[in-house]
């Protein structure tokens, strides 16, 4: 075979490979474009609105004011408080649900009668709608008059308390932990079941106690799963809105940034410009918190070397 082409053999092969790659990717393009349009357009608009002075309840025209909304945000005492609540709420809910999730996963990672049934029961909180979860906890658990918690405390002689108004932030955290523990449990269970049983047997033969096996072998093995749990948990929990709305309605000390953003815009103040700027800050904060969480976790587990 003689080739009339002036291209070398190598170049011909490369051109063919390129063509082949293009042929395979082109059909994916519409989906990619659609995804970009749908997911990124609102973000780009928010970004744009964040630079505007725009009050929905006046007829004043929109006005480009640069970073003023952002600098104002940090001056705003209410925003700073909401940011602090966001951090507290997210960090504590994520950490607690990861810890409880891991503990429950350890219990479920062994064979016992009714295992499937118990596992399903434990997952149910995650399947409950956030609004429903909030209402159930508020009216059945925390309620001053009819709440289960107060009833139990009364039985042992402790007086009833107004849980929601006394501890607005922590009641919300409790409900969040209740809902998110099953999710973390699922991730950790997947991690535990991915651990080779012979590694655990080797540890036994090597004379490791149960706690040494857990801290030196199982926990390092779970690290990527913990990271995943923390990452997903942070991303979702920084956006919590429904629980706050139903339980405290944003009562003192329980307004996080998303709730605050809503109050500033559609809720009451119609300050679309600054609300947009705040929501951009939430995105940045989510990234920062997730990163920080991962760092801390990696640091904790990195130190485990003989």
């Amino acid at each position: 075979m003689t080739s009339t082409s002036t291209l070398s053999r190598d170049e011909q092969v490369k051109a063919l490979q390129k063509k082949d790659a293009r042929r395979r990717r082109i059909p994916l393009l519409p989906a990619l474009i659609f995804t970009i349009v749908v997911t990124q357009t609102p973000f780009v608009f928010s970004l744009y609105f964040g630079f505007l002075k725009w009050r929905g309840n006046t007829t004043a025209p929109r006005e480009w004011i640069g970073f003023k909304n952002y600098t104002d945000a940090f001056q705003n005492m209410f925003f700073r408080e909401a940011a602090w609540v966001s951090i507290l709420m997210t960090v504590s809910a994520v950490l607690l649900s990861v810890i409880f999730g891991t503990l429950i996963a350890l219990l479920l990672d062994r064979k016992f009668f009714g295992q499937g049934f118990v596992r399903t029961l434990i997952i149910t909180p995650f399947l409950v709608m956030p609004v429903v979860a909030g209402l159930v906890w508020k009216n059945q658990m925390f309620s001053f008059n009819f709440g289960v918690i107060n009833w139990v405390l009364n039985q042992v002689g402790i007086e009833s308390r107004e849980w929601v108004s006394e501890f607005p932030l922590w009641t919300i955290v409790i409900v969040l932990v209740w809902q998110w523990t099953p999710f973390m449990m699922l991730i950790m269970l997947a991690g535990l079941q991915g651990q080779s049983s012979s590694v655990l047997e080797a540890a036994k033969v090597d004379g490791a106690s149960a706690s040494a096996t857990f801290f030196q072998i199982t926990l390092p093995h779970l690290r990527p799963y913990l990271e995943l749990g923390v990452l997903l948990g942070s991303i979702y929990l920084i956006q919590v809105y429904d629980h706050i709305f139903t339980i405290t309605g944003g009562g003192p000390g329980s307004t996080n940034i998303p709730f605050f953003v809503n109050q500033r815009s559609f809720g009451a103040a119609f300050a679309y410009g600054s609300a947009s700027a705040y929501s951009i800050l939430v995105v940045i904060a989510a990234i920062l918190i997730a990163n920080f969480g991962l760092r801390v976790l990696s640091g904790l587990l990195e130190g485990e070397e003989a």
Binding site: S196, S198, V199, E201, A202, I217, P220, H221, R223, E304
Partner: peptide, 12 residues
Amino acid sequence: MVFQNYALYPQM
């Protein structure tokens, strides 16, 4: 004991 799949501790 030496295991068939060696059972080395992967993170160490």
